[in-house]
Each structure stands twice: as C-alpha cells, then as structure tokens.
Design a protein around this nucleic acid. Structure first.
Length: 508
DNA sequence: AGAGTAGGCGCC
DNA sequence: AAAGGGCGCCTACTCT
C-alpha cells in the first residue's frame, strides 16, 4: 500500500509486487484511523517516502504497523550501488503545521514511479529484498523507540550530577567543582590556565620543562606533575557537564524517558547514527540512571564477538568457523596459532578486521594467516580492492561509497584499503543485527505484554519487559533467525550475552 | 558573527 | 594498554 501525503489528505494506492497500481488512488482524511483498520484487515506492507516523517504521527495516535518499505532508505542503498553519490538528506522529524508547503509534497505519480523503480531493482535479488525489509523494519523500530523512550530516572541523574559537580550553576557559570579544579590547575602552574585549551596546557607544561606533543589522557598519565590528576578530573567533569549535564536533561529527558533521535542507515556501513542526545554514546557512568519501571526488568542482550564471527561465516575459513563454534572464539584461535595466548589472538583478530599496520599486530598477523588463511585472505582481498579504488559490498549487497564520493573526503590508498577491509565485515554485522532487531520486534509485537524494544546499539538490544524470561527467549530465537537468514546452515555460532536487570549499569 | 577544523573523548 | 574501522558532541581556535 503506497502512502502519499498531500497535506490535509493522504492518498493511498494499492500496488502489486512490482509496484504497479492495482487501482485508483483513494483519499483518506484520517490516516491513523484508516491505517489501523487496514493493518488489522489486510496486513499490508506500507510504502512511503520516509518512515521518520510518517510514522511518528501514527505512533502518537496509537497506531503500530508491522511492515514497511522506506523509499528514502532503500533509494539511498540503491543509489550507492549504482555508484551515485548517495549523499542522504538528514530527515528531521518536524511536522509542525504549515512547515511544508503543499507544492513540496511529491505527487502520487512521482512516488509510484519511485516505488516501481525500486521494487523492480530489488525484484531479482532475494538478498536485496531481505536487506530492504531489514532496513525498513529498522526504521519502524527506531521510530517506536524514540516514541516510547528509554526509561531514565531524572532524579537519579540529577543527584549524580550534583554529587559530581555541585549544585546546578546559573546560566553561563561553571559548576563549583569545575571552578575549583580550574583554580587548582592554575595554582599548580603558577599562572592562570584554561584547562580546556590544549595549547595553553602544552605551553604551561613547556614552561615547567615538560615537552608535550598532545595533551591526551594517556600522554598526561605518564607525566609526574601535580597538575596532571587535576586536569584529568577536570576533563571528566567538563565532559559530564557539557554533554550530559542539566541542559541535556532539560532537552532530552521528559517524564523519566530519554527520547533520542535515531538515524537508521546513518552510517555508510548501515549502522544507525543518532542526531542529538548522543543516543549511541551513552557513557557507562550514566547507565545507573537507566532504571526500569516498577514490575519491569531490562533484558540486556549483546552479541559477543560479533565481527570476528561474521568474518568466519563470510570467509568460510574452515578453522575459523570451527573456532566460531565456541562461546569464546579467541580461545581456539589462541590454541591454534598463538600457543594459547588469548590476548595475542585477540590483538591479531582485531588487527585483521581493522587493518593494523604497526607494531606487534603486524607480526601476529603472519601467525594468524598460517592457521586461518582463508579468513585473512578474505579481508585482504577487500583491502586490495579498496586500494585500487574499487567498491566492495556487504553480504546482502550494500555497497560502500566510491572513492570519488563526497563522503570519502580524505585519505590515501592505504586508508581506503583499511576502510573497505572493515566495511565488508562491519556492514554485514549491521545486517545481522538489523535482522535480529526486525525478528525480535515482530515476536514482541505478536505477544502483547512480552516487552518493548527500548534501545539498539550496533550489536546490542535492550527490551523493557514484565516477562523477562519470555523476552530473553525471543532474543535467542531472533539471533538464531538472523543467523539462518544470512548464513543458512553454518557451524558459526552467534552467542548472546543476556542479562536481566532492573538497571542498565553493570552490577558492581 | 558564523562556518569549518582540530583536539579530545565517549560509544560500538 | 594501544593499535586499526565506524560514529557524535563538546570546546578552542582559525578562517572568512
């Protein structure tokens, strides 16, 4: 069912598998009401320009939909595949009346044309159809998670802010804890120093006879000077105050829910991004304020060692797949190639995924290649393709941008190789995670009361549930389904680390 | 004054 | 403990 918003009215057009209309457009004046009844009777796939723009309003009316096809997201995937720039517009959800002029709505013919074009392009490829379905389901999930919000105790967070920073300062002034540290840093150097200014800090250390090339924490930690602990503490507090302080609470937390803006497909690899609120960078220290409602628990599930397992399954390296049959992939890799030294195995595997070129990782790579030749060859093939300026693809067919695209602004051939090497794995890992998310969402929706998705971050999902054991089972079933969809019958396992807790923070 | 870059650090 | 890939967001600082 194609949905064409035209202002006060919405046109609905039923279409066939390839997007050709099956009848004339019907106009409806209350989309939420019509959509709810059609969803119950016909269970259609809703095709529209933008889930971000259309679905938020429906959610506010209490309407939930099972399936959609997001023309913007899929259009972007297809454009990148064609080698076009694929620079996506950022869809800001803002539907204040009158914001869009009537003439800025696309016509029904334009939407139908786009729909036909996309469904035709996907038609021959089950992989691309799966990718489109997963990407679109992700968009629905993102809108629902923004709508529902992550349970977040504002009182707990405000108490934490006060304990770290002191009372809320007046507009334009610093919290007392930061002001005190700033004064103490200045004392330690014997003159007024702004601890937030790297150049001032470097100069101050220079006068004390300490030459620095940077003021990064790991550089400072090696230095014996009374200002160092003060600077590091100041940096932590400054980050907390400016990024997740009182202003952040005012903007992003309401009725004890954190409602961030997710951007499905916002990263070229297919990972989600976020705009505002820092949804995908919630610091560990904030997680003690993520507290479940009474009678609810969080089911916190992350896919352990996801990318190495994806590499094993994609490369079909016999010994790597065997290692990935274990709960801890690094242990068998260590046994096979590193005399049982697990930390070396981990360094080597991460190095091969990211393209480590320096230091110990380089020599460990040689050892890894000896025992796992197909796995190493797989990423090196992708790296060499990138160095030659070629494009690489994920398992389901998401292409990376051309080296000439606006997105790829800088970097030499080696940087391009590191990017394409990582892309094939990261993009396929994103696909696995999206399939899990889509399947889990479907199971939760089919069993009212089993819980709601409240967070998704690359390889981790959080469900807020009154029936955590049911939700836990759904997570495991969804992980199996995702694995089967992408890799069929594979010896590679994708174990989920699942915790059931009333608070998101790690237990002490 | 506003845009853009760099440094720094949080997340995966 | 980094290293290597991908991000967002803040401040300082430079350029226009």
């Amino acid at each position: 069912m194609v949905v064409v918003p035209t202002g006060a009215l919405t046109q609905l057009v039923a279409v066939g598998e390839d997007g050709t209309p099956l009848g004339p457009a019907q106009e409806c004046s209350n989309l939420a009401e019509t959509a709810a009844s059609m969803e119950a009777d016909l269970h259609p796939r809703w095709i529209w320009d933008s889930t971000a723009r259309m679905y938020a309003g429906l959610l506010r009316e209490g309407v939930r939909l099972a399936r959609c096809h997001d023309l913007s997201l899929i259009g972007s995937i297809l454009a990148v595949r064609r080698g076009e720039a694929g620079e996506r517009e950022v869809v800001l959800v803002d539907d204040r009346p009158g914001l869009f002029d009537a003439h800025r709505y696309p016509t029904a013919d334009a939407v139908l044309g786009r729909c036909h074009e996309q469904l035709t392009a996907l038609g021959g490829s089950p992989d691309l159809k799966l990718l489109a379905a997963a990407e679109s389901a992700g968009a629905l999930a993102a809108a629902e998670m923004s709508h529902d919000g992550l349970p977040f105790s504002a009182p707990a967070h405000l108490a934490y802010l006060e304990s770290e920073l002191g009372p809320r300062p007046d507009e334009g002034t610093l919290p007392v804890a930061m002001a005190e540290l700033e004064a103490a840093v200045s004392d330690a150097f014997g003159r007024k120093i702004n601890p937030s200014s790297p150049s001032e800090v470097v100069a101050a250390f220079g006068r004390a006879g300490i030459e620095l090339t940077s003021t990064r924490a790991h550089m400072l930690r090696d230095i014996d000077h009374p200002a160092v602990p003060l600077l590091l503490r100041h940096r932590d507090l400054s980050k907390l105050f400016s990024t997740n302080g009182w202003a952040w609470v005012d903007t992003w937390v309401h009725q004890n829910r954190f409602r961030p803006v997710y951007v499905p497909g916002g990263v070229v690899s297919g990972r989600w991004a976020s705009r505002g609120g820092g949804a995908l960078q919630i610091p560990k220290t904030l997680r003690s304020s993520v507290i479940a409602d009474d009678g609810f628990q969080f089911v916190i599930a992350d896919a352990g060692q996801l990318e190495p397992r994806i590499l094993a399954a994609m490369s079909r390296d016999r010994k790597m797949m065997e290692a990935a049959g274990s709960d801890d992939l690094y242990a068998p890799v260590a046994a096979a190639a590193f005399d049982g030294d697990r930390s070396k195995a981990k360094v080597a595997v991460l190095g091969v995924l990211y393209g480590a070129t320096a230091g110990e990782a380089r020599s460990l790579l040689t050892l890894l290649r000896r025992r796992f030749p197909d796995a190493v060859r797989f990423v090196e093939t992708a790296a060499r393709a990138g160095e030659r300026g070629e494009v690489v693809h994920s398992l389901l067919g998401r292409a990376c941008p051309q080296p000439t695209s606006q997105w790829w602004s800088q970097g030499d051939a080696h940087a391009r190789g590191r990017f394409t090497r990582n892309f094939v794995v990261q993009a396929t890992a994103s696909e696995w995670a999206l399939c899990l998310l889509a399947d889990l969402r479907r199971r939760l929706a089919a069993h009212p009361g089993s819980g709601e998705l409240v967070f998704f971050q690359h390889d981790e999902v959080v469900v807020h549930s009154r029936e955590p054991e049911t939700a836990r089972r759904f997570v495991l079933e969804a992980a199996s389904a995702a694995t089967r969809l992408l890799f069929g019958d594979t010896p590679v396992r994708f174990p989920m680390d699942i915790a059931v807790r009333s608070c998101y923070a790690d237990p002490e």
